[in-house]
Computed example of a mutant assay.
Amino acid sequence: MFRPVPVPALPPSTALADLATAGDDHAWLAGTTGVFTSRPSAPLVLSWTGTTWQHEPLPELPAPASLAGIAATAPDDVWAVGNTAGHPLVLHYDGTTWHTVTTPPITWAKAITAHHHDIHIVGTGRDTLHYDGTTWHLHHALNSTRENLTTLTTTDPHHTWAGGGGLAGAGPASYEYPVLVHWDGTRWTDHPGPRLARGHIARLAATTPDDIWLGHVRDTDGLHLHHWNGTRWTAVPSPDAPGRLSLHGIAAGWTWGVHATHNTFETRPTFHRRTGDTWTPVALPHDLDRTSAFHVGLTTTGTTTWAYLKTAAGVHVLRHTAA
């Protein structure tokens, strides 16, 4: 069962974006405050101290900004990415202070992944950013300007995958197709994904090069799941859930999203854990599984899993520890 942990009071205008961990005792939650208000939006990072979540002091920025992703390799090496004034916003925590990091420009940064000192960032365009521990480099990962990348996962400096989608055709005959590329330590190349005719890849998660989870959106009912075992891709049935299930994400051994009963617009949070070949729902505390929620997310180390969700009562952060 998930158990709640204390969270500082956050304004109703807070939008949650991503979670990152560096071991079982260190975690960071990224988001944005001032969303859909007259105030300038501002990046938000909370960190887990071992007993509670606390605000991280971030650098002052000259323009409104938002965060879209966060990644950590160690307690003193945390990266967050977002956007400000039409440029990517990259923040780095060195164990003492958060700093802004200057990078080449890309179009609307969406996701970041990190392995030791090897960092990749993708955005809504064909260009990616790569930090090799010394210098930032701009790379073309895609051939078409009608393709873009929105999700990343990595296992080591020679195995990083990025997914997204492209647009084919024109007008009423246009359609979206999935895009999957692989970084081998030197360059990006097309990677053979599951046989998907339409839609886009919305989520990637990997533990090893032979254990990759992929979430594919082909219509409006959330993710469809696929798994790579090093030899072939296999479609994985979605968890059973009452009413209408809409999955938002997948991690190694976990899925998360919302479900709604028929003829309602109430979206209740749901988290499932992989047990053998089946998905098992994980209970939520304080009747949260009966409460309408959004901004649902999760990250896991394998033994410790953090989840977040937002309800009308505010932001909730939950912790699950494997027995």
Rank of each mutant, 00 (worst) to 15 (best):
G31W: 04
W279V: 15
G164R: 07
H115V: 14
D289Y: 02
L214T: 13
P285V: 15
A202M: 07
T103G: 14
A30E: 11
G34Y: 10
R126C: 00
P194K: 00
W183C: 07
D277G: 14
L58W: 02
H120E: 13
T21N: 00
T153Q: 08
T160V: 14
R244H: 15
I121F: 08
V296P: 01
T311E: 11
L247R: 00
T234N: 10
H200D: 08
H115Q: 06
T186M: 08
K310W: 03
I250M: 06
R3K: 10
A71V: 03
H137G: 07
T303W: 02
W108M: 13
T151H: 12
R218L: 07
S292W: 00
D287L: 12
R198F: 05
P75K: 12
G302H: 02
L138G: 03
W256R: 05
V45R: 02
L288E: 03
I119Y: 07
G95Q: 12
K310C: 01
T267K: 15
T155C: 10
G215E: 01
W161F: 14
P11W: 09
R319W: 11
G257K: 01
S174E: 15
V296A: 01
D221R: 08
D127N: 05
Y177V: 02
N83W: 02
A197P: 00
P237S: 09
A168R: 09
G125W: 05
F36S: 15
H286R: 15
I119D: 02
G125C: 05
H191Q: 14
P40G: 12
A252Y: 08
L214I: 14
T32K: 05
R218F: 14
W136K: 06
G297A: 03
L44Y: 14
W188D: 09
A202Y: 02
H295V: 05
T102K: 07
W48L: 13
V282M: 09
V317A: 11
D24W: 00
W48V: 08
L58S: 01
D221H: 10
V45M: 12
R232I: 15
T128I: 05
T51S: 08
T160E: 08
P43Q: 10
M1D: 08
P11A: 09
V7F: 02
S41Q: 15
A63R: 08
A293S: 13
T102S: 13
F294Y: 06
W188A: 08
P269K: 00
D287F: 09
T231P: 09
D240L: 12
T96V: 12
A205G: 06
A20M: 07
P105D: 15
T280F: 14
L245Q: 04
T150I: 14
G297I: 00
S47Q: 10
